[in-house]
Simulated assay, not measured.
Amino acid sequence: MTTRRDLLKLGALGPMLPSLAFARDARPVGKASKSLDILILGGTGFTGPFQVNYALARGHKVTLFNRGKRPSPEWPGHVEQLFGDRNTGDLDALKGRRWDVCIDNPTTLPFWVRDAGKVLAGKVAHYLFISTISVYADGSKRGIDEGDALAVYQGKDAMGETQASLRADLERLYGPLKALSEAEARRQFGERVTIVRPGFIVGPRDETDRFTYWPHRVAQGGEMLVPGDGADPVQFIDGRDLGEWMIRLAEAGTPGTFNALGPAKPTTMDAVLRACEKATGAKPTYTHVAPELLEARQADLPIWVSRKGSLAGYGAVSNTRALRAGLTFRPLETTITDLLAWFRSQPAERRAKLRAGLTREQESDLLKAWRARSA
């Protein structure tokens, strides 16, 4: 089942493949009323390429700043590439430049924002920061909204934390350091700051396989274990919807803080599985298993959060403010279909073992244990 550690890793994604086959939307994209000079910190991870492609389609100029460690996609237009390393404070390539907008995708450490502010404050008109719902202190509260209390840092020196120290104590540090990064963004860039707090980001290019597990398993058919009674709420956002909305927020110059989760209306675990059926044409037989057994066996069932558990709030976060600010969602069946098409396009060794979810052997053992308990 989804654990506190899983939720704290909402933004901790692995390396991405350079393919942009699913970054370009088949729907027509109109030009923006004004062309912007957009600086994207990162830009080659999960959502970054969606931002770049949508920005180019809208007629904006795009500059990327990163370490150049990931292979760069072949963009459908000109993209300026600057190199540096925020871990070592190497931001020289940004000095003496101005942009209308800066989108900060990868930051998990407050000193990254502080150092960016030293170079960019007064040089960008609008700063957008991707945070996480893991910043909230109380994960049990249903209807978490942007005004709720944030996690408090308990360490000695937040600005001294590094990626190594974060990885060593992810559960304790991730949410508080993201919250402090938000505060540092406001300190450095003032009122023209937008904080976006997504939950699980899903869809094509998702290397974590957390959401992929469900349509992949549905497509296999047969008896399938479903956690709980199927009525637990589930929230996530397609990376394309997130990336494109970030560009629209930049165009509108919208400041403020927003929870970025979908769908627009509440959905449940069973509803997600029905959408998987429609997308795959498969018809598994579902067996619902009580959360108590799953918890006792430490079952890896990603995305799902029991509505009766200590993390229930993470399945029912308020997205009202984001909807009012123009966040939209493509149909869930589209996300599922495109995700499976992307996943099936990966090399055989990549597809051989999912990085999240149950193996068929683990699922079979749990189903046997459930039958024995219910006998």
Rank of each mutant, 00 (worst) to 15 (best):
K9Y: 05
R330S: 11
D85W: 03
F189L: 10
L64A: 00
K69T: 04
R307E: 13
M246K: 10
P198Y: 09
D25E: 14
T280N: 07
P331G: 11
C102M: 08
G203K: 06
P49Q: 11
R58N: 03
F83P: 01
G68P: 00
A57D: 04
L41P: 02
D100L: 05
G190N: 09
I40M: 09
L327F: 08
I144N: 09
D338P: 05
K123P: 10
P106Y: 05
A369C: 10
A137P: 00
M1A: 14
G262S: 11
G309W: 04
Y314R: 08
L10T: 15
E251D: 13
A121V: 02
L173N: 05
Q220L: 15
T280R: 08
D241L: 06
L7N: 14
W245G: 14
V272R: 14
K368C: 08
T88A: 09
L366T: 10
Q188P: 12
V317P: 07
G155F: 08
A231I: 11
K156L: 12
I336D: 10
E207Y: 02
L109G: 03
K308S: 09
Y314A: 07
T108E: 07
M16Y: 00
V305T: 15
D6N: 15
I130G: 02
A164E: 13
F258M: 03
G253M: 15
